[in-house]
Structure formats: structure tokens, C-alpha cells
Amino acid sequence: MHIVVCIKQVPDSAQIRVHPVTNTIMRQGVPTIINPYDLFALEAALALRDKHGGEVTVLTMGPPSAEDSLRKALTYGADRAVLLTDRFFAGADTLATTYALATALRKIGETYGPADIVFTGKQTIDGDTAQVGPGIAKRLGMLQLTYVAKIGALDLAAGTVEVERRSEGGVQMLRTKLPCLITMLEATNEIRRGAMVDALRAARAAIVKWSAQDAGVEDIAKCGLRGSPTIVKKVFAPPPRAEKAFMIEFGSEPPADALIAELFKRQPKLEADLVALARGF
């Protein structure tokens, strides 16, 4: 069985700083990480491989530095890593991203054998759209299973897979045919710690690097900024609220009553509402 996992190297958003004056992102010293959500996809893929045999290939589109993330994925135990990197890909929105990734996935199929399952994370923490997964699936004509909480019976002979998919009101038990694309839900597993052998292999592994041309991109105009229907016109920091909070001061005792009084003063309706709630309406 061949599984491909799409991972993305993202800046650790928690540590992103916005230039106070220009409102642009100050990249200096902002560390990059594997998009946390993608690790759930990777672990799910590795677990399947361990159970059913086969190979796991990790794929990312990004700058040359994204090699770090791929190497890390190898350390966890992935068998092969492909880095799709080319200035033509710069500034891609989700549509352009899925074009590039889908093309690379076809190429991976030709080169290392077609994928039975493609995994993506639920979403990235920088793009944060949760669209790339579905987009890839559509472009490759694969069936798509999003927000998957659990992967059940996988029957390679019959080419079917069963999953538990989170939906708004509950959990759907679905069965579909391979090949399919699965976007993994967060907190569904915990990424393993690679053994020493894997770590050693990863440290030395050669990362496959493909340019747009290598990957077999026919139409450069479909890539990167040019291939992106959406355009970011403005980037700005969220406006601060005008007035600061009204601070309740107090002595030694916790100012519970003072607080409640203040609340009801500000929201006369609130007391009635709370009473209603207390009544259980």
C-alpha cells in the first residue's frame, strides 16, 4: 500500500510578531514547525502502514527551508519525502496550491506507485482554510473523507475503507472506495517518537526536490500568485477596543457582590435573563 501525506511548514503563529509601524510580519527569529494538524494525519498514515505494510511518502510545497519539516517527518518514520519548490509557486492561494499539489501527486504516483490514500491535516494554522484537502481530492477525482476521527476496516483486496467522520450533529460511519483523500481530525492520535534507526536514516536521507517542471506542471499560469483567483488586498492588525475595561477595586474580600451589582447595573435585562436560565427555560 502507498500512502502520501501532505504536510506544510508553517511559522509558529503563537510567536508571530507584527511590526508596530508597518503592520507587516516580522519574520526575524520566528521559528517554523510542521503544521500541528498534519502530525495527526502523519501518525494515522504511519499506523496504517505498520498494520498493512507498504510505504508512506510525505509531500510539501514550500520554500527550500521546508526541507527541515520533511526531514522531521522522516524521523517520525516516513519512508520518503518530496519537496515541491519553485518560485513560480510563490503566493499561491488554495486553488493554485491544490493545482500544484495535485500535479505533484500524479507525478509521485507515476514515479513511486499510485497512492491508495492521500492524507492531509484538517487545516493549517497560517492559511487556516481547510480547503486544500478537498481541493486536491476534487482535482484528482478522489473520494474525500474530511474530519475523520477514526479509521476502521481497511480492505485492500476489496479496495474499501471505513471511517468515523465527525459531522455537526454527530458521527457518520462511512464506507468508500480507494483511492481516497482523508483529512484527519485533531487529537485523534499522538505522533510517535521515531526510533534511533529512523532518526539516523532521516538525518542522511536525500530529499526529493522537484521544480514545477520536474513535477510535470503544464501550465505555469495556474501556479502561485498568477494562478490564484483570490487576491489579498489588505493586511492589518485587529483594531484595539476604544475604552479599557472598567476595573472593580476591592479590599481583602473577593468582591463578588460588587461585581454582580456592577453587572446588573450595566445590563438591566441580565438579571431577568439569569432568573429565566435558573428556572431552566
Binding site: 517518537r193 521515531g194 526510533a195 534511533m196 534507526v197 532518526a199
Partner: peptide
Amino acid sequence: RTDRHGGEV
């Protein structure tokens, strides 16, 4: 010896 599984070198 390291903290990785099978980690003696």
C-alpha cells in the same frame, strides 16, 4: 546511550 528506542551507538 540515547533516549530513542534502540538508541545505543
